[in-house]
């Protein structure tokens, strides 16, 4: 197999708040033999605009993202929600027929990280950067949007040096929901509190998720309650070494 070419869509949260996740992904993919590109000029997928109902604005953001990634063979995204936006909403948003065609092509080539590792590269065995017990939170868009529950779990179950335990209520929302978290902060925080009680009950040292939004919410909540549990992106656990 020739070296796969990957274009990284780092996303706005990944760029500004969690750059180490992007760095981990680049190094990991290179170790797996991929060529990694980073199309310059990328900003955000437009999901926050789209979900809040600002579709004209979301369309403009989506159109330039489609153009930026037009020549990519594979696009890897660290967040399930952004991957879902590209795959499920971009084609419908495009009005220009040529752009719509490009958007459909892009949708077919876009993958959330764990899906790309397991389903495209066929890699399941990784070494962990940390030891101990880990648990996993299903991000809503990854689980119910992209119907992906298994790929991240397959990686975590096979992860050397790590004990994977299921999180009770793993498939329940963490309360982030984009602007929801600040429009209804009290509701969002109570949903989060219940989630974090479940997390702490697992006795895990790391809470893993594949979405920067959930990690911002759950990580922020864990820090606030001075928990010893760390919220980490899957990529950060895998940085130690390729298969």
């Amino acid at each position: 197999m020739t070296a796969p070419r990957v274009a990284l869509m780092v996303t706005c949260l990944g760029d500004v708040f969690f750059p180490e996740v992007g760095v981990s992904i680049v190094r990991l993919l290179r170790r797996l033999g991929a060529t990694v590109e980073f199309p310059p000029g990328q900003t955000c997928c437009g999901l926050p605009l789209f979900n809040s109902g600002y579709h004209t604005e979301a369309r403009a953001v989506a159109a330039r993202t489609v153009a930026l990634f037009r020549d990519a063979d594979n696009v890897v995204v660290p967040s399930g929600s952004c991957a879902w936006m590209v795959k499920h909403e971009y084609p419908g948003l495009m009005q220009d027929p040529a752009l719509k065609k490009d958007a459909l092509r892009l949708a077919g080539r876009t993958y959330e990280l764990s899906q790309f590792l397991v389903k495209v590269l066929g890699r399941r065995g990784f070494r962990a950067t940390v030891g101990g017990r880990v648990t996993y939170h299903d991000s809503c868009h990854l689980l119910r949007g992209l119907h992906e529950a298994e790929s991240p779990r397959e990686i975590l179950r096979n992860l050397e040096g790590v004990e994977f335990v299921e999180l009770p209520g793993a498939d329940e929302c963490c309360g982030f929901g984009g602007s929801f978290a600040v429009r209804l902060p009290e509701v969002s925080s109570q949903i989060l509190a219940k989630k974090l009680e479940n997390v702490e009950a697992t006795g895990a040292a790391c809470l893993v998720a594949c979405d920067a939004g959930c990690l911002m919410q759950m990580g922020g909540g864990l820090r606030r309650r001075r928990s010893r549990v760390r919220a980490v992106h899957l990529a950060e656990l895998l940085d130690g070494g390729g298969a």
């Binding site: 868009h141 119910r144 929302c173 982030f176 929901g177 984009g178 209804l184 969002s188 949903i191």
Partner: peptide, 8 residues
Amino acid sequence: HASSLCGA
């Protein structure tokens, strides 16, 4: 806006 759009 009374929804996190979690899809449940």
